[in-house]
Amino acid sequence: MAAGGDHGSPDSYRSPLASRYASPEMCFVFSDRYKFRTWRQLWLWLAEAEQTLGLPITDEQIQEMKSNLENIDFKMAAEEEKRLRHDVMAHVHTFGHCCPKAAGIIHLGATSCYVGDNTDLIILRNALDLLLPKLARVISRLADFAKERASLPTLGFTHFQPAQLTTVGKRCCLWIQDLCMDLQNLKRVRDDLRFRGVKGTTGTQASFLQLFEGDDHKVEQLDKMVTEKAGFKRAFIITGQTYTRKVDIEVLSVLASLGASVHKICTDIRLLANLKEMEEPFEKQQIGSSAMPYKRNPMRSERCCSLARHLMTLVMDPLQTASVQWFERTLDDSANRRICLAEAFLTADTILNTLQNISEGLVVYPKVIERRIRQELPFMATENIIMAMVKAGGSRQDCHEKIRVLSQQAASVVKQEGGDNDLIERIQVDAYFSPIHSQLDHLLDPSSFTGRASQQVQRFLEEEVYPLLKPYESVMKVKAELCL
């Protein structure tokens, strides 16, 4: 049975990233139509530049190519590739079939990587351009969430054990800070992308030097003109047959890092959902379990974690691919890159769409948070109580021993009897502590235990987050809708 299948058929496997999760716009960027249309555009740009620099290419040939950029006979191309065992030459023939007058000058002087690699770089750039505003929107939604809850005390956790208090907004800023680093890295790697350009079979530009009869300047002009037509500021000066596969490492490393950030955020949300302090959106008709109707599973956060793990592992592909590119190139890269580049971007696209949807509907339960604080705060307040007693004339050592005994009794009630923490009640009825009984409410005010959390939130948002989001103001209103 021949390899390949009808990918629109229910009898043929289709990647869930495309069929179930990723956005239509990201799927289109990695589609065959987008790819092969870009090949034709690159052939047109090459012909236009070659004509401008004096090669015998007519206006009629150029116009014929322009008129057929979208006229792609995919069936013919597939048949040609089956016959020739070469995808680029299959599309040269297919393009030439609908451009008979231009057929002889299509791909003039070029090698397969002229269309293959340059198209990949265009796709990487455009895919990054799709991700950047999506990530900015996630940051914006979380920034709104953090600002609104900047002063809401909550129990902090280290080692997932109760620690000092923080605020809900401050905790959210930990998430935002990681995503801001990801946004900066995505922008950097996007701006650092260079075009492969017009380089020939081993990167020496020998074929173009021959076409222009040894004119170095025209060869350099050709490279520059096509690079500018493709919208790049610069091209690699040095290439082998391909652009260095280190570029793929750079791009997928940034995406993998984004995956790590999203995994951490969504894990926190899942843990908070278990504590009943916070939940992701839950639709009115949504079913959490087929057997347990009360369940409210954090399905979206779980999906993000599941896909983020996949995204983090994909960076190993370009690392290994770059390491086995012998001399000017081997074909070890080809099949692998067809999979890992598309999957990385479709996965990143999915987790950003999902995280935006989550961040637009996060639900906080202040009463649950308050109750958990009441359970733990008495123990945390013991040092403040000791200091207040010393100020009232008591002995630190005597007070410490009193607190120690009462704390152990209260802990026994919590752990052995399943009761509430009654340390404060014990202190309130103990005559030894009568000098500070009137101060206990103040000493137990949760806001006095959150330090500068709310001020940190305000400063972080104003100095770091809002300036970073400013270039994306025009796209901030787009909502994230999930079908599944």
Results as ranks from 00 to 15, higher is better:
Leu165Val: 10
Ala127Trp: 00
Ile287Gln: 05
Cys172Met: 06
Val390Asn: 05
Asp6His: 00
Leu275Glu: 05
Asp430Glu: 14
Arg37Ile: 14
Ala47Met: 05
Ile369Tyr: 03
Glu463Trp: 10
Arg194Asn: 07
Leu252Gln: 07
Pro133Lys: 15
Ala388Thr: 07
Val262His: 02
Ile72Tyr: 12
Gly418Gln: 03
Met292Lys: 03
Ser257Leu: 07
Val324Phe: 08
Leu275Trp: 14
Gln439Phe: 07
Asp6Phe: 08
Val324Arg: 03
Phe345Thr: 12
Phe232Gln: 01
Gln375Asp: 05
Thr52Ala: 14
Asp59Val: 10
Leu406Gly: 06
Arg40Cys: 03
Thr158Ala: 01
Cys266Ile: 02
Leu482Asn: 07
Glu302Thr: 05
Leu331Ser: 01
Glu360Gly: 10
Phe236Gln: 06
Val364Pro: 09
Gln409Lys: 13
Thr94Arg: 10
Phe157Thr: 03
Ser447Val: 12
Ser207Val: 07
Leu362Phe: 13
Arg125Asn: 07
Ile269Asp: 00
Gln325Leu: 14
Leu362Gly: 06
Phe30Asn: 06
Ile369Trp: 03
Lys75Asp: 14
Pro366Leu: 04
Thr350Trp: 04
Gly5Met: 15
Arg33Asn: 05
Glu463Gly: 12
Val413Ile: 12
Met387Lys: 05
Phe195Asp: 01
Asp420Ile: 05
Cys304Asp: 05
Glu376Trp: 05
Asn357Phe: 08
Asp349Val: 06
Asp11Gly: 09
Phe36Asp: 13
Asp6Arg: 08
Leu132Ser: 14
Arg33Tyr: 10
Arg171Lys: 04
Val324Trp: 11
Val254Leu: 12
Asp333Leu: 02
Arg270Val: 04
Asp117Gln: 00
Arg33His: 07
Asp420Tyr: 05
Ala150Gly: 12
Leu272Lys: 06
Gly288Pro: 00
Ser112Gly: 06
Ile122Asp: 00
Gly394His: 06
Thr227Asn: 08
Met476Ile: 15
Glu360Ile: 06
Ser19Trp: 10
Ile237Val: 10
Ser448Gln: 15
Phe236His: 13
Ala453Leu: 03
Arg303Pro: 00
Gln428His: 14
Trp39Ala: 10
Val254Lys: 10
Glu50Leu: 08
Ala291Met: 02
Val92Gln: 00
Ile62Gln: 06
Ser474Trp: 15
Ala90Met: 02
Trp175Leu: 04
Gln184Ser: 14
Ile123Cys: 10
Phe433Lys: 03
Ser448Met: 15
Glu481Val: 11
Leu209Thr: 13
Thr450Leu: 06
Asp349Gly: 09
Arg329Trp: 01
Ile57Phe: 07
Phe30Thr: 07
Glu277Ala: 02
Thr201Cys: 04
Lys134Arg: 09
Thr267Arg: 01
Asp216Ala: 10
Pro471His: 15
Gly54Arg: 08
